[in-house]
Structures are given as structure tokens and as C-alpha cells.
Design a protein around this nucleic acid. Structure first.
Lengths: 145, 145
DNA sequence: GCGCATCCCATTGACGCCCATATGGTCCCA
DNA sequence: TGGGACCATATGGGCGTCAATGGGATGCGC
């Protein structure tokens, strides 16, 4: 029943750390997640974060197809080459590294966005823009029907 | 056969709380709803509120299509990233967070609007305007036919 | 030795839990 | 039929707890 839900924006301190929202930490604790698997999202300028199971799911998907196919190769490039493991400190904060900043455009604030089985790190304005666009498309779709 | 019906406007107190109308709380109690799923409406500048079943219905809709499709991704961005679980306090009030204020324009009063299987939070004037417009369109449609 | 990351502790402001009061409506009885 | 007791809802506020944040100190690698 518990999943990553809603969004919240936290500030990055002088040392480059940011608190993961308590609600998200609860979900991580409940799933016994110690190491966080982080990777650059496939479509959005955001970092996706989840447990090791997230990586394993991707790897199974790769394994399901021809290991030498261009598609599998590309996938591995993204999830292995574009992913890292991270840990939270004792207070539940994580370091915002250049790996994260460069890909997302994050500078001094981070928006945490729940995505059910994982969550994402966004540059606040980029998130609002993406959400507004998604809502706009959906509104049009609704009026059509 | 109970559903969310009619509308009522309540004041937000100094701590940012507002009482959910008793009639709505009765419906919630009858349906055994403890946790409220709230999300930013797709069409109106309003927060829609219902039970967890509301979220589950959306998730089934997502699951029905390719989980990696852009459409499913976009939908998740809205219902997971734009949604949140909330609880009422012992007196049947809920906190009006920035999450709600920013999206609706609510500042010191909230209009609760019944929508059968869920209800909505509106900024009072925005609700009256939307209702007036809907009435106008309907009147024109009637004259046409 | 210097820079950077981790560990530890302090502060403060927000939120949850609890109890008190007001206000308006209903019902009963004189 | 009018007054008053009673009740439910809406509202106000105290207080403890916890999360978010800031900053010092320590340890490790370059």
C-alpha cells in the first residue's frame, strides 16, 4: 500500500546536501532499502532513485532480449553507464553531486517527485513545466472525447 | 447510495486548517476511507479528493498500457507526482498546504464541492466563475437544440 | 597538508494530538 | 407558540514531537 507519492521541494545546504522527505524515507525503510540506485531518467531531465530491485528489473529486461541487439546495448549504456549507487547519511540526506547537477540543472533546490515504485530528483521549475505540459495534453484529450 | 453532493465554504484558521463539511465526512466514514488521496485536477484549478480506490483506478488505467510508453509516464507524473495522501485530524479538519494553495489560489477560504464519488477543493471565487461559465454554455447549448 | 566527505550535535519551525469555546439549529415542554 | 435545554458542527489555541536545516569536528584520500 505504501508507495512514493506527491512532491516536495527542499533546499541544498552549504555542503551540498539535501534532506530526502520523511515520507519517502519511510517507504525506503519499509522496503529495507539501504543502497539507492540512481540513474538518469530516459525521457525527463531528472534523476530516478529506487532500490537495487529497480536495477535488477532493468537487467532482467535486457536479458530477455538478444544480448547483442542494439537495443540491449543501448539500454545497458544508460542503466549501467548512467547509474550509480548512493547512501543516505544518518539524518536522511544525500549529496547532490555534479552527476546530478549536470543532468538536471539543479543548483540550490531539489524537488522530490514520487513515482510509485521509485522517486525522482528535479530542478523545481523544470518539474512544474513538465507537469503543466502533461496536464495540458490531458485536458485536450479529455475535451476531444 | 450516499455520494458527495452540494457545496460549502469554510474558513481556514490561523494554523492553516479547514473543517471538511460534516456531510462529506459522513460519506467518507460510510465508505471506510481513512486516507484521503488528493491530486491536482486535470481540468480545473482544484484539488480532487477521494479514497485510495481513486488512485488505484488511475493505476489500473496506467497498467493497461505499455508501462514504458510516454503516455503512461506522463500519467504517472500527474497522479503520483501530483498526488498525495492526507489524513483528517480528530475534529475532521485537513491542513491546507502550499501544495494545495499554489495550485488552487486558495488563501483564507475553501469551497468544498461534491462530485459524486469524490469532492473538490476550490478557491471560492474560482468555483463561482467556473459554475457560471458552465451554466452559460449549457444555456447556449439548450437554445441551439 | 589540504580538500572533501562523513559523523555528530544544536536549533527552529512546522505539524499532530489534545482540549476548549462559539454558533446555529432542533427538539421538547410549558 | 415561544422559550429554553440540548446537541452537533465549526473554529480557536496550547503543547509536545519530529523533520528540515545549519554548522562544528573528525577521518580519509589525494
Amino acid at each position: 500500500m505504501s508507495r512514493f507519492l506527491s512532491n516536495a521541494t527542499n533546499r541544498i545546504d552549504a555542503k551540498g546536501r539535501v534532506s530526502v522527505p520523511s515520507a519517502f524515507r519511510s517507504v525506503l525503510a519499509q522496503r529495507n532499502v539501504q543502497e539507492l540506485y540512481c540513474f538518469q531518467d530516459f525521457v525527463f531531465p531528472a534523476i530516478s532513485v529506487g532500490g537495487p530491485d529497480l536495477l535488477e528489473r532493468f537487467e532482467r529486461q535486457i536479458a530477455a532480449e538478444d544480448p547483442f541487439s542494439p537495443d540491449a546495448n543501448e539500454m545497458s549504456l544508460l542503466i549501467h553507464g548512467g547509474g550509480i549507487f548512493m547512501r543516505l547519511d544518518a539524518e536522511g540526506r544525500l549529496m547532490v553531486t555534479d552527476f546530478i547537477r549536470g543532468f538536471t540543472g539543479i543548483s540550490d533546490e531539489v524537488t522530490f517527485v514520487g513515482r510509485a515504485d521509485h522517486f525522482q530528483l528535479w530542478q523545481p521549475q523544470a518539474f512544474m513545466a513538465a507537469q503543466a505540459q502533461a496536464r495540458g495534453e490531458r485536458k485536450l484529450a479529455g475535451k476531444r472525447s
